[in-house]
Design a protein around this nucleic acid. Structure first.
Lengths: 263, 263
DNA sequence: CAGTGGTCTAGACCACTGG
DNA sequence: CAGTGGTCTAGACCACTGC
C-alpha cells in the first residue's frame, strides 16, 4: 500500500513541500492516482478513443483498492478527459466522435437543433507561418516573435457564411500543418490535432463581445459593414493547463445564437 | 432496506412505469435518495443557507448506508444545489453568499478580476404588472395573457451604466414584489427571491446575440444608437426544471466582456 | 472533545457488452 | 459466458470545525 505522500513526480496541483508551508500539504491517494493517470494521458500511453486499463488492472498497478481508482476516474470523467462506457471500459475522450462533435462550438440555429443543419462547409482562406505579436505570444505562453501558424477560415451553414475564424497555433508542436491538410480533413479540427499531432484540447476559455463588422470581415461573411458580430476570443488548453491555441471567431447572430448553460 | 423500486412519489426523472416500456426501468437507490432530498428542498423543509441533516442521520432516515446517501449528496453538490463544508455539514446552496454572488452574471471588466469593481449600482427604471405576451408566456410555461410582473433596471459599474435588463416573472409566485422592495434590497436579486418568496433559481439557459442598440436602449446606457450590444436572453429555472424567470439583458462590451469556460 | 464530512478498504452483487 | 463498469454495504480511520 502507498502509505503516505508518494514520490509521484508531478501529481497534485501545488507540489508537496513538506516544510512549514501554507499549502494544503495533504493530497489524498485518489488525487495522486489521478495525477498518474493524467501523466499517462499526456505522455500518450493511451491515445484518444482508446480504452485505458480496467479499474481492477489499474488498482493492481497502483497497489490501491478498486474504489480509489474509481474515484480518480470519476473525477477525470467529470472533467471530460475520460469517458466511461458500462460493460465496455473507460476510454480516452476525443473530439472525433459524432456525439460530441464541435463540443466547443456553441452556435445553434435559431430554429432547429444543434447540428440539424448538417456538417458545416469549411473554407480555408489563409494558412501561413508568421511570428507572434505581443498579445498572441502572451496568450500562447510564447515570447514575442516566436514562430506561429496562422489560419483563417469561414464556416458556412446551408450555403450562408456564419463564422469567420482566425486561428493561431505555436509552430513547433504543429510542425507540418498545411492548408491542404486543413482543407481535406473530414471532421473537427481538434480531431485532426489529436490524430496528426498528438495534441488534445481539453478545455477552453472564451471572452465574448459585440463588435461591428470591419470591412474585411463584412466581405468574407457577405454582410454589411458595421453589422454587429459576436466576437469570441478563445484560448484552448491541453493537459496540465498548457495553452495551445488562440482563436478569434466572429459569429453572425441573425440566423444563429450562442447557447450557454449556467449551473 | 429499500429492496427495489420504492414508491418514492416522484423521485427519478421519467417515472417508473413497470410495464413493458422503453424507459430505463431501473433506478439505483442513490437516485431515489437524490429525488427524496430534492423533494425536501423543493418543499422548503430545509431553506437556502441552512444545514441539512448529517449523512448518518439521512442514512438512518432512508434506511440505507451512509455511502449511498453520500453518493446522492455528491450529485446534488455537483449540480450546486447543496454545498459541502468539511467538519461543519452540508448546506442548501444560496445566492446570498459573498463568494458566489452574481454566480449567473458572467460579465467581467476588461482589466481586473470579476467583482473587483465592487458592488454594482442598481437602478430600477420600471416595475409593473402586465399580462404575458405569447413569447413571454411560452418561456415561463404560462398561457398568453396570464399575469406577469415586469421590471426594467440598469446596472452601473463605477458610475458608468453597463447593463440594461428587462425581467419577467410569473405574478402568482412573486405576489407582493414591488419596485421599492427591489430598490432597497441589498444583495443579488436571486437572494431576495429566496428569502421573500421561497423561490430558488437553480440553473439557467442563455441565448446570446450581437445586436445594435435601439434608441431607448442607447439612452438608458448613455451610448450611441446602433452601438453593438451583447443581447443575453436568460431563462432561469427553479427545482424540477420549472421556468421561473425570463430576463433580457443588454450588455455593453467595450469596458467588459462575457466570460465563458468550456470543458 | 464530539460531530461533521473525506478517504480508503474489501467484498458482494447487479447491469451492460460482446463474443 | 467472462469482463467491464455501476451499485451498495459495513467498517476503519483521517481532517476539519467549533465548543
Amino acid at each position: 500500500m502507498i502509505t503516505s505522500q508518494l514520490p509521484t513526480s508531478d501529481t497534485s496541483p501545488a507540489a508537496n513541500d513538506n516544510g512549514p508551508s501554507i499549502t494544503p500539504s495533504f493530497s489524498p491517494l485518489y488525487q495522486q492516482i489521478k495525477g498518474m493517470i493524467l501523466n499517462s494521458l499526456r505522455l500518450g500511453e493511451w491515445k484518444p478513443g482508446e480504452a485505458i486499463p480496467s479499474e481492477m488492472d489499474l488498482a493492481i498497478r497502483f497497489r490501491v483498492s478498486q474504489g480509489t481508482v474509481r474515484k480518480a476516474i470519476d473525477d477525470l470523467a467529470a472533467e471530460h478527459l475520460l469517458v466511461r462506457r458500462q460493460g465496455k471500459g473507460t476510454f480516452v475522450a476525443t473530439h472525433a466522435e459524432q456525439q460530441v462533435q464541435f463540443r466547443f462550438l456553441k452556435l445553434v440555429p435559431n430554429s432547429g437543433n444543434p447540428g440539424s443543419e448538417g456538417p458545416a462547409h469549411r473554407d480555408i482562406v489563409q494558412c501561413r507561418r508568421s511570428s507572434a505579436s505581443a498579445d498572441i505570444a502572451r496568450a500562447l505562453a510564447l515570447r514575442t516573435g516566436d514562430a506561429v501558424l496562422q489560419a483563417r477560415r469561414v464556416l458556412s451553414f446551408v450555403g450562408t457564411p456564419a463564422i469567420l475564424e482566425d486561428i493561431w497555433l505555436p509552430a513547433a508542436p504543429f510542425k507540418g500543418l498545411t492548408a491542404e491538410r486543413l482543407t481535406n480533413y473530414q471532421g473537427p479540427m481538434y480531431a485532426l490535432f489529436e490524430t496528426e499531432f498528438n495534441m488534445r484540447m481539453v478545455r477552453a476559455e472564451e471572452k465574448i463581445r459585440a463588435e461591428p463588422a470591419t470591412q474585411g470581415q463584412a466581405e468574407l461573411l457577405k454582410i454589411a459593414q458595421g453589422t454587429p458580430l459576436l466576437s469570441v476570443e478563445r484560448t484552448a488548453y491541453t493537459y496540465k493547463d498548457v495553452p495551445m491555441e488562440l482563436r478569434r471567431g466572429y459569429y453572425r447572430t441573425d440566423t444563429h445564437y450562442y447557447h450557454n448553460r449556467l449551473s
